[in-house]
Design a protein around this nucleic acid. Structure first.
Lengths: 337, 337
DNA sequence: CTGAAAGCGCTTACAG
DNA sequence: CTGAAAGCGCTTACAG
């Protein structure tokens, strides 16, 4: 119960206490064989009595490995990023890797600074969870240490591994769901200029074209304008919107409700990402779901392979559509009771 | 542009390249004085050419310090925890500390396991963001390394620093807001059995008593029962509820709306924590706000002091109430247009 | 201002 | 099965 912060016992102290050489202690505490059962017990006992713990720096220095992975996310406040982190962490548990997470604040400079700091700790690999990470920076790092990006930045160098969802499929699911309900005037609400958002935007256009539908003439860049268009009651106002992400879908619904437009009676809305929030809000949000934890697990697995010498891959996972109450037929009948 | 992963250059390589001794390289790269300007330039140049980076393990080993802080949170998915992490990270930036975050999954065993792993990396201090961390475990760790807890576990040992908000004040603000609007039948919806929730529950009772009001007879433990009571139209049904946290407030509102009870017309609701979510939902949630980033910054500051030898303190910060649209006078008139 | 030496705490061959 | 020695890459006194 005494304060153990002062002289931290070393392998040398344990050796003296147990009356053996340092080498033996090293073997014994690591559970290697080559130590007699009795001796081992005596050593472990001494280590325990002294409160011995292996010094991580000495160990890493001599072994040249840290058993450590750094994960950098754009923004921990996003449930998307957090779930990916969970996937990475859980997968790391089973491979005896320790993961250290840091947050890039959706800011290139902050991300870079935090990345450098993590790098200075000597991780064996890096996972970057970002759809907009700087390709040049990633190239620099990926040449120094194995690196996997979860998300969909453009121009990623071949040295970097990649895991992302198929945005084409996701947005296609959203559009098909709306047309199956009977919608024809379907607008798209774009998100950021990020590559993922761009892919969704394109898929929206392509799917509408395949279905013989026109893209909704004005694709307003902001929710407020879209709500105004619907509120005007014009004959060509959209009856449904597929959004580039949940965040903007939530904003759209908020503004629609504020303007007295019922959702889904006057406007059906589909989100993308299926954040926790989607199920809790009212109306609960129909949304495209990415298998986020799986993506995190895939990232860690690929990273482990790369650490082992494998080269980078490009993995694409398939999203699904989760139906809730923000979508209904255009006449206003609710989809479910 | 070649792959730098193989032979990583050491101080020795730089010394040879620059034609000086290793000691000089050490001084030069750390920016210490005692090196001539010319020599220094030559050394830095050589280091740059070779892509030299100081080996963190060797440095930590010899200095006995890692400049590293580990932050363990109960659940990164909670916006509360994430904001505290942001506060810690930003504060750490200015003290040249690197912070490594890990997630305890709201599970004692997971938390303990992750904590041990982080500890094995040799951080100089620990921040635990948890309102329910195991006191005995915290005691063990706090005796080995400086530790600060953000949150309000019970029975924390004196070795551990602490930062939390004043739950008494927060809940009092909520109740007073409701009585100022004219509510008299005010119920409380408890959260978990955590100490913070218990403190809020007590403060609710004390404040009601001070105001000469009765605690609402049945304090239903679950949102569904509360909604049923209000829906019954009974004369003593509550007209307002102050919730132990936002999460349960959101659930309550969802269930109320599902049951056709308008919020705030039929039921006013106040949350606690002011998560991002609170502003985005409809009706937007009136909620008690804790200065989360400040709390994180305080935690890091206190930890830095403890690393410097100071003893643990107990800091309490004051919450505020953020007014939104989920509360209104009991007659149903909206509080704002 | 500069260099040679010792040592941080561990692991890893290598002898016995 | 056990011990003595070298070395991981750095920093820190200590001489010159």
């Amino acid at each position: 119960m005494k304060d153990q912060r002062e002289h931290r016992p070393t392998i040398h102290d344990v050796a003296a206490e147990a009356g053996v050489s340092k080498s033996l202690v090293s073997l014994a505490v690591r559970g290697e064989n080559g130590v007699g059962a009795q001796t081992r017990a005596r050593i472990l006992d001494a280590a325990d009595r002294l409160g011995y713990r292996s010094n991580p720096w000495a160990r890493s220095l001599v072994r040249g490995r840290s058993q450590t992975i750094a994960v950098l996310v754009d923004d921990l406040r996003s449930g998307y990023h957090t779930d990916v982190v969970h996937g990475v962490e859980d997968a790391a548990d089973s491979s005896a890797m320790t993961v250290m997470v840091a947050d890039g604040r959706r800011d290139r400079d902050v991300l870079r600074a935090r990345l450098e700091r993590m790098l200075a700790l000597g991780p064996e690999g890096i996972v970057i969870v970002s759809g907009e990470a700087d390709a040049a920076m990633i190239g620099d790092i990926a040449r120094r240490v194995p690196l996997v990006v979860v998300g969909r930045p453009t121009d990623l160098p071949p040295e970097a591994g990649q895991v992302h969802n198929d945005d084409r499929v996701g947005m296609r699911l959203a559009v098909h769901h709306l047309t199956a309900l009977g919608h024809r005037r379907i607008a798209h609400l774009p998100g950021s200029p990020r590559p993922a958002a761009a892919a969704r935007r394109e898929s929206y256009g392509a799917t509408m074209a395949e279905l013989g539908l026109e893209e909704h003439a004005a694709v307003p860049a902001d929710p407020q304008a879209l709500v105004a268009a619907v509120g005007s009651g014009s004959a060509d106002a959209p009856t449904a919107v597929c959004c580039a992400n949940d965040r903007i879908a939530v904003e759209l619904i908020g503004r629609a409700l504020d303007a007295g437009l019922e959702v889904p009676a006057r406007l059906s809305v589909v989100g993308y990402d299926n954040l926790d929030f989607a199920a809790q809000m009212r109306p609960a949000l129909t949304s495209v779901d990415q298998p986020r934890r799986t993506m995190g697990a895939f990232a860690l697995q690929q990273l482990a392979e790369m650490i082992g010498g494998a080269s980078a891959r490009h993995e694409v996972v398939t999203p699904t559509l989760v139906l809730r109450d923000s979508t209904a037929p255009p006449d206003g009948r609710p989809r479910r009771s």
